[in-house]
């Protein structure tokens, strides 16, 4: 053995490494299906977007719909709420974002109703800023759903959505 090892790489060394490589690639390829099966399946993905009729939601009212297993708040904001959201100085925010960047139409605020702290559902029209208040650990959100006070690090998330026409919105 010692004499062999002192020599240049032998055919046996080559076969050993080549076999090991094929084995490693094969094991990796085989591992993928066993990991990928944990990802959302076709039946979950098929329900990944929803359409909501918003024509009946009057000014100052809101509905909560379920999307991908989470609540989505659709709020028809009042003029006072819109102007309050627009007047906030962006520099003062923990997660700076202008109100106009959080909406497609100013009167419709559509966001995922999950507190960015630890996942509870905030209560609407509560808290120090007239927006949302999370009862779990006391995070306060303003009328644009931005974090203003409390432990949450980020603003309430905005889902992907499009207005199909004046009365319908497609979320996801």
């Amino acid at each position: 053995m010692t004499a062999d090892q002192a020599e240049e790489p032998t055919r046996r060394d080559f076969l050993y490494i080549a076999t090991g490589t094929v084995g490693a690639v094969g094991a990796g390829a085989l591992a993928w299906p066993f990991i990928h099966q944990l990802n959302p399946d076709a039946s979950v993905k098929a329900l990944a977007s929803i359409e909501v009729d918003i024509s009946a939601i009057g000014e100052g009212a809101a509905v909560t719909v379920t999307w991908r297993g989470k609540p989505v708040f659709i709020r028809h904001r009042t003029a006072a709420e819109i102007s309050a959201a627009g007047e906030v100085k962006i520099e003062e925010l923990r997660d700076p974002q202008a109100d106009k960047d959080r909406v497609q139409k100013p009167e419709w605020l559509i966001m995922v109703g999950v507190c960015t702290h630890l996942g509870c559902v905030p209560l609407g029209q509560k808290g120090d800023f007239g927006g949302w208040f999370c009862p779990c650990h006391g995070s306060h959100y303003d009328t644009s759903g931005r974090i203003r006070k409390g432990p949450a690090p980020n603003n309430l998330a905005i889902p992907e959505y499009v207005f199909l026409d004046d009365g319908r919105v497609k979320i996801g």
Binding site: P33, Q37, N39, D41
Partner: peptide, 13 residues
């Protein structure tokens, strides 16, 4: 059948 059709690589497993 859900395993066979919907789950990623469910047919294989």
């Amino acid at each position: 059948e859900h395993i066979m059709r919907d789950v990623n690589y469910g047919w294989l497993i």
